[in-house]
Design a protein around this nucleic acid. Structure first.
Lengths: 245, 245
DNA sequence: CGAATAGTTGATGTATCTCAAGCAGGGTGG
DNA sequence: CCACCCTGCTTGAGATACATCAACTATTCG
């Protein structure tokens, strides 16, 4: 179902001499700034992953912690017969590779081109500031996973797809949404995932995801501009279809 | 579907003068010990919950952090139309009520009689030792939730029930299981959950859960001694039905 | 342009849900 | 002590949402 390639699991580029002044400092994430203050900057390694590059596999020794500086990645698990479940989609600012044991419990793979900072796990345990960042990130993850469990356990296919789409609109959906019509009730979003990947995230098949998109198109709620570029015409309508309102 | 009662959400019994010498100190959990060392003991409050007592509801201000000293509780979320999804089952030694925002993202309710330690959230933020405990617990939670997401997203009804049962046998299933027949391939477990609760945990209906139990009975893998007392006769067979082996 | 990959749509199958009836165990009160 | 009730569980029959299989179309890329 999903052929894994260990294509880009190159050793961390330790040779990249650290705070190199590329790209301007205003693009730095909070954690990046934090680390510049609290750590030996020579320890900050970065790596660029292209779509479908694997960062690590389930069972790999969990020696590093990663921070997404830009781009999107997915964490997934495989069952022995090939069934895949994407357990998290990690965005810019998120940490991943936080392991409870000494090995990773899931695989990590880039969805879009992604710039990632790589930290030594042992180093991270030294810095209290970093620990606080980790805790904050974990609390967010647990809450997101709770929502995801509800989506997978109790929602219909259409509700799952609506929930998936709403997550791209941070000011809407979940608890930010007042329910009342806002001035601009439309927005354009970039999925960065194939139908198969969306299906593997939502516990569906790609055909069912496709049919859900068609149904939303038929209802005028969205328009497909490209295959992974979606115009949401009525955010509030979409919101009501998530099952959470 | 589930009538909520705010029956036992009594104010924290601050009056219970702290390290009272009830029950002997050998029964203390690691965190309890830790807190005795690092905190003003007068701040340690405890509360006993009976089955179906609510600890907190989704949306309640997240002022406290809880540690399970004994017993079992569940965390669940409700959709507006009454669909319920149990997102976590918390056991002795676990923390819960760890919120990312200023309110709880789910409801907490006792499954069995449960003794719970209650900490002020602000106090917890002071202690570095406590923070470490929280991080450890969160890492465990994230991993468990990943597994649960796979179960809900990609497993059949029978696989879900097998996965549910295996979780009661800590030395088996998941990564502890070698797959080879161990000397004692049977064990007795207490579910502490009704069929409806198991269903709400596994994203199924109670009828489907019941049918899965009957199927496992038919295959000789388990025997029902009471409704919530299960004798697992062939742990390894059950393990193979989880889909993870 | 043509092949390869990704997405859509239709027809059919099936796992699970829904609805409904009957059963089992535990507690209560006459 | 037994009849009764209540709650939770089991089992069956039928409905349905989603999966599967398959053909076709759209998009991407060399």
């Amino acid at each position: 179902m999903c052929v894994l390639e260990r294509d880009d699991l190159a050793p961390v580029p330790k040779d990249s001499e650290a705070p190199p002044s590329h790209e301007g400092d205003d693009a730095l994430s909070p954690t990046e700034i934090l680390l510049r203050l609290t750590h030996d900057p020579r320890r900050i390694a970065r790596h660029k992953y292209e779509p479908h590059n694997t960062v690590f596999l389930e069972g790999d020794p969990a020696d590093h912690i990663y921070e997404v500086l830009s781009g999107t990645l997915m964490l997934y698990k495989l069952l022995p017969d090939g069934r895949r479940q994407i357990v998290e989609v990690v965005l810019s600012g998120d940490l991943f590779g936080l392991a409870h044991m000494d090995v990773y419990d899931c695989c990590a793979e880039a969805l879009t081109p992604a710039l990632v900072a790589i930290f030594d796990r042992r180093d991270a345990q030294m810095s209290e500031a970093f620990q606080q960042q980790i805790t904050k990130c974990l609390l967010r993850k647990v809450q997101t996973l709770h929502d995801h469990v509800v989506t997978l356990g109790r929602k219909t296919a259409l509700e799952r797809v609506a929930t998936f789409l709403i997550r791209f609109i941070p000011t809407r959906g979940s608890y930010g949404c007042t329910g009342k019509q806002e001035p601009k009730d439309c927005t354009r979003i970039h999925l960065a995932m194939t139908r198969q990947e969306i299906a593997d995230y939502l516990g569906l098949t790609l055909e069912t995801v496709s049919r859900a998109f068609s149904e939303l198109k038929r209802r005028g709620i969205l328009t497909l501009e490209k295959q992974d570029e979606v115009m949401i015409n009525h955010i509030c309508c979409l919101c009501k279809l998530t099952g959470a309102h």
